[in-house]
Structures are given as structure tokens and as C-alpha cells.
Design a protein around this nucleic acid. Structure first.
Length: 322
DNA sequence: GCATTCC
DNA sequence: GGAATGCAACGCTTT
DNA sequence: AAAGCG
């Protein structure tokens, strides 16, 4: 079964499960053989009135692909019970009272949340965990091993989406020059993330250093477009944030909803779409249907991995510069 | 959203 | 009993 | 040394 079929099935199941909840504010949902207690289903989480029930419907609809991108990655939830970004809080450890069936992983001394099933996602909806963040690294035998290099493009006002598009084209060319496949997605806020599935050889520098080198390379070639300067006041154009590849860093997962003035989704794109796409066009209302039509454009961002050396070589002259 | 702690 | 509080975390940079 | 940043 391919991604489109899986989502079609999941969407039908979501409609059936959520349909049975219509008009109710509390309920017990049975999914994947688990019982999830739901409350405040009518609570609005976005200005246009999308509710916790809408978030639940979305998460269940995209569950097969969303879960594939969360697998083996310790989760950071961004919870906002009233939908307001300013009152949101992070949660990475299981809260007291969490159901015993919710999986956790031992990560660097603590226990962190994992998502494995649709029941897990339903629980996160109940928790008003609007954003699901994961590291570009996977758990393997208790260790967190980087499996993706991410170039995070963030426009600094007055730069905006048009500048991000131009910046993305440059990143695409750079990745083509390195001979690696790369995959763009909307951050769901104002920026864009480019993912490269990689595997590091023993002699390779860490992905964070390679990403920082690529950022400096881009900024040297087009200083009006790219900036790698940390100090916010001195940034111009599009900020290339290599820090997202560092230890313990996370990004909004593919297909994660984002908090804000609309339920935008961090949506994978085709490279050829980047010039036409706009973040506002991809929300919980549009992404499930898009998945059925296009499949999961990020499936190959999970692998097969490509040698990090291909990028390390390009970045080499810039690795230890500033 | 909810368990815990504080007054 | 009702209100307040915590719920991540850390290296790197700038000041 | 402390504060800012993501």
C-alpha cells in the first residue's frame, strides 16, 4: 500500500471516528485498541475557529505518513490549550498521568516521548499539542544518530516569502552541484526547510558544522540574499540557520501543524513547486487531500542516505571560517 | 490540560 | 478549596 | 561573566 492509499484509508477512518463525536464536548475515543479520553473538543485553537476536534481529525487523517516521519525520533510537543502562541509550552518528558501505553525512550539520562500509533496522535490532540517537533536524527540502540542535514531558511523582515523562494533556488543548485537529492518543505511559518538524507562517515565533520559551512558558502556567493549572522539586529535577507542540526535541536516535523493565525502545516513540496507555493495555501483543510493526490513527497527524505562527504567537500573551504 | 504546590 | 505554577535546554555568540 | 538567540 502506497502513501496515498494509506492516507485515503486513514482519512475515511478519521471521518468515521470523528463523525461519531460530532456535537459532543467530551468522549472516549477507541482507536488502535486504546482508549483516549477527550475533553473540550469544541475549544477553538485558531482565530478562524478550528477546534481541538479539527486538530484530531487532521492528525488521524495523515497518521500513516506523519508517523513515518516521527518514528524513532524523540518528540518535543508544543502545547497550547487555548491556541495562543504566547501561552504555549514545550513538553518533552511524559507528564504525570500519561497513559501507560504511551511509548518513551531513554535519551541522555531522561525519558522522552515517542509517537508510534494513531492513538498516540489522538492523545496529543487532547493535550492540545499543536506542534510536533523532532530532531534530524534517529534513535538507534539508545543513541541519537543524525540521519538528515537540514538547511533552515528564515526570512528577516522586510524579507519575506519571495526572498525565501530565491534563497531556496540557490540551495537547490548547491545540492545539485554536490550530486545529492534534497527535499524542500514549508516550515509552516514564514520559512522553508531543505532536507538531505545523509550518513556520516568516520572522517566526516558533524552535520551541524557542514551545514554551517554551506551557509557561509551561500552567504559569500550572495551576501544580499543570505545571512548567517546570529545577532538579530544585524541580519538582512534570509537567515540560514545551521544551528538546527546541532545536538538536541529539533524542527517542526513534516506534516506538523503550526500555531499561529491559521492552522498551517509544515508541508513537503516538489522542487518545481517552490516558485508557486505559498505557506498560506497549505493547512489542515488542504493537506489531507493533497496527500491523497500527490502521495508523500518526503518519503525519500527518510532515505536511502547519501554520503555526508559529498556536502562536506563543498563546505570544506568554509568549515572553520567566519 | 492537568498534576502538584502554594496560600 | 481556589489560585498559582511548571511543563526544554544548551552551545554558541554577542555584549 | 552575563545575556541573547534558536
Amino acid at each position: 500500500m502506497d502513501a496515498a492509499q494509506a492516507v485515503e484509508w486513514a482519512q475515511a477512518r478519521a471521518e468515521a471516528l470523528v463523525g461519531a463525536l460530532a456535537g459532543r464536548d467530551r468522549a472516549v475515543l477507541e482507536v488502535d485498541g486504546r482508549e483516549v479520553r477527550l475533553t473540550h473538543l469544541g475549544r477553538s485553537l485558531f482565530p478562524a475557529g478550528e477546534t481541538k476536534l479539527d486538530l484530531l481529525r487532521y492528525l488521524l487523517s495523515v497518521a500513516p505518513v506523519l508517523l513515518s516521519h516521527l518514528a524513532d525520533r524523540p518528540l518535543t510537543l508544543v502545547r497550547s490549550p487555548d491556541g495562543t502562541p504566547s501561552t504555549a509550552f514545550f513538553q518533552k518528558n511524559p507528564p504525570p498521568g500519561a497513559p501507560t501505553w504511551l511509548a518513551t525512550a531513554a535519551v541522555e539520562g531522561g525519558r522522552q516521548l515517542l509517537a508510534r500509533t494513531s492513538a498516540d496522535l489522538a492523545l496529543f490532540a487532547q493535550w492540545a499539542a499543536v506542534e510536533l517537533h523532532v530532531p534530524p536524527a534517529r534513535l538507534r540502540q539508545g543513541d541519537l544518530v543524525p540521519d538528515q542535514l537540514v538547511v533552515d531558511l528564515d526570512p528577516m523582515p522586510p524579507a519575506a516569502w519571495p526572498e525565501v523562494r530565491r534563497a531556496a533556488r540557490g540551495v537547490r543548485r548547491l545540492m545539485e552541484a554536490a550530486g545529492v537529492r534534497s527535499f524542500p518543505k514549508l516550515s509552516g511559518a514564514t520559512g522553508l526547510h531543505v532536507y538531505v538524507p545523509v550518513v556520516a562517515g568516520p572522517a566526516d565533520p558533524p552535520t551541524a558544522r557542514v551545514a554551517a559551512g554551506l551557509g557561509r558558502l551561500l552567504a559569500a556567493a550572495a551576501p544580499d540574499l543570505y545571512t548567517v549572522v546570529r545577532a538579530v539586529a544585524r541580519r538582512r535577507g534570509v537567515y540560514v540557520d545551521a544551528g538546527q542540526n546541532g545536538r538536541g535541536r529539533t524542527l517542526a516535523a513534516p506534516y506538523s501543524v503550526r500555531l499561529g493565525d491559521a492552522p498551517r502545516v509544515s508541508t513537503p513540496l516538489d522542487w518545481d513547486e517552490v516558485d508557486e507555493a505559498h505557506p498560506d495555501a497549505h493547512t489542515i483543510h488542504t493537506v489531507p487531500e493533497r496527500l491523497v493526490r500527490r502521495g508523500d513527497l518526503f518519503a525519500a527524505a527518510l532515505g536511502p542516505p547519501q554520503p555526508l562527504a559529498a556536502l562536506a567537500e563543498l563546505a570544506a573551504p568554509w568549515l572553520d571560517r567566519r
